[in-house]
Amino acid sequence: MTDLFHEPAGDEAPAPPSRSHRRAAARRRNQRRKNVVSFLVMVLALVLLVGGAVVFIRPLLTHTPPESNDFPGPGQGSVEVVVDDGDSGTAIGETLTDAGVVKTVEAFTNAYSANPNATSIQAGTYELQEGMRSVDAVAALLDPASRIDLRLTVPEGWTVAQIYGKMADLLMVPVEDVEAAAEKLAASALPESAGGELEGWLFPSTYTLSPDDTPASVLERMLDKMISELDAREVPEKEREALLIKASIVEKEGTEQYWGKIARVVENRLEGCSGDGRLGMDATYVYRLGKKANDITSEEWRKDDPYNGREGPPGLPPTPIGAPGTGAIDAVLDPPAGDWCYFVSVNLETQETKFTDDLKQHLKNQEEYRQWLREQTSAPTETGE
């Protein structure tokens, strides 16, 4: 047996580790301690980091921003507000806040102060929206189009006398000033066939007046609008006066659904369907006398007046009898074909109107109308020819 297989006796102690072994073991123990400490430091740092994030981020996630003192706009609906003479920005803001136009007086006064033109806001009645941004409310108050009391609305059929009176009120001038401006405009801008009369030439619409407007400037705008409508329809200048006369009569004699037929009756009457070339329509004489048809006396009906469609001269009256709109103008320009010579509204509630070319049938239709009148508690003005 060789010593390669020799084992020490059981009572022999193992040889002690060498110095190098002891130093290696110590280094390993130190490294393990350092690793543990580093790990603990990392864990602590991570805990601190997460905790700090929670502390700082949570308020950001749960924070509710302060409520704005202004509406986001743009607004909806409409509301009328009045700015009184001498109102300050704060006073206007209080008015708008009470009306629900702006959210707070503070927001409005800030917008008012930021707009260098805000001090130019005029006293008057304005149409604004509810829920507007304050800057938009200031801008609207500076826009003349928002001024209700500076809107001249001319309905279809209004006469120049009605237009002049309304314009004088809005511009706060004597009606004589408006009439003088109208006379100058008529002399310089109307075709010769108009005879120097603006009646029928002022287009019915809504016009916004600015503080700089005068009777002359507003009248000119209204005349220009009518001329532009006639230009668009390519109406020859020499035919315009007659067209406006016919259209004004058509508009006064019936409702829109019958304008075309009434326009044809006008043409047929002028061509002699009734035997005398007279229009026979009450509206022209009503215009002349300024009273209702059944208030006109028998003596007045017998007068030979150019506006008296029953006993006056044949043909058209000298001027239009109001301001016709585009609907009546178009009806005259293109009336439907038909041989109707007479018409009468047999029921003023439904506006049912009957047309015929036979005088006997027309008389029966008139009697139908009178029967309807007898069934009413009050008798309205008779219409129809």
Rank of each mutant, 00 (worst) to 15 (best):
Y112T: 02
E220C: 00
E130V: 15
A328D: 10
S298G: 09
P336G: 02
G327Q: 10
A123M: 07
V175N: 07
G290W: 05
R27N: 10
P314V: 13
E237N: 12
L96N: 09
D177G: 08
D231M: 06
V79D: 01
P65Q: 12
A9S: 14
Y342P: 01
G196H: 08
E367R: 14
V178G: 03
G89S: 11
V105S: 01
Q162I: 02
T383V: 14
A187P: 06
Q257W: 03
E239D: 15
T90M: 10
F5V: 14
E241G: 06
R23D: 12
L289M: 12
F71E: 04
I245P: 02
K261Q: 11
T90A: 13
V82W: 07
D98I: 11
R23T: 09
G384V: 08
T377C: 04
K184S: 14
S378Y: 11
V138Y: 06
L4H: 00
S88D: 11
L223T: 01
I148S: 13
S378A: 11
V54M: 07
D213G: 02
H362P: 03
E237Y: 06
N268V: 08
E349M: 01
R374I: 01
P72R: 11
R23Y: 13
L230F: 05
I163W: 00
V135A: 15
D357R: 01
G254M: 02
E80G: 08
V101C: 04
I163G: 00
L96S: 07
S18V: 14
V102A: 06
D305P: 05
S134D: 08
D224L: 09
E192A: 15
K360M: 07
L289I: 09
T159P: 01
P380D: 02
T62P: 00
E192I: 14
Y307K: 13
Q366S: 09
G124D: 11
V173R: 06
V154T: 13
K364C: 03
G312W: 10
T353Q: 03
I92T: 10
M167Y: 01
G165M: 08
N117V: 04
R58N: 09
D339S: 04
V82A: 14
G327I: 08
S188Y: 03
I92C: 09
W372P: 03
V102P: 08
P318V: 15
V81N: 07
T95M: 07
R23L: 15
E176P: 05
A216W: 04
Y164T: 03
G10H: 07
E253W: 13
I92N: 13
